[in-house]
């Protein structure tokens, strides 16, 4: 299944850094999300877009993960040549990630 089946997401920008949240619709899926959606997988998923490090922050109180991706916005929103310089659409791109269905 796709990540979008169990989670929603929003992307934000600061300079050349994009942050993309992943929030479980059902808090019961949080542990599975934390296991399946690693920083490494996210970096690989954004190959060709994100050229720097990806750091993951965990916010279990709202069943959410936050991915902070360096060198992700074409050198910065104000000088980027990208069609979507803010990377607003990266949330939808991340939700395309294929993940294995949780057990049970």
């Amino acid at each position: 299944m796709k990540l979008r089946d169990i989670a929603h997401s929003r992307a934000g920008d600061k300079g050349d850094i994009s942050n993309v949240s992943v929030i479980a619709y059902d808090p019961k899926d949080y542990e599975f999300l934390a296991e399946a959606v690693t920083a490494e997988r996210v970096r690989e998923h954004f190959s060709g877009v994100v050229h720097g490090d990806v750091v993951r922050y965990e916010i279990p109180s709202i069943a959410a993960l936050n991915f902070v991706m360096q060198q992700a916005l074409g050198g910065g929103v104000t000088r980027s040549l990208a069609l979507d310089p803010h990377g607003k659409s990266l949330s939808s791109v991340l939700l395309e990630m294929e993940i294995d269905r949780p057990h049970g």
Partner: peptide, 16 residues
């Protein structure tokens, strides 16, 4: 709660 959670993390790096 879903709209608030999305905005809570909008443009946030380390939430702590």
């Amino acid at each position: 709660p879903a709209t608030c959670k999305e905005q809570l993390l909008y443009e946030i790096h380390d939430p702590a």
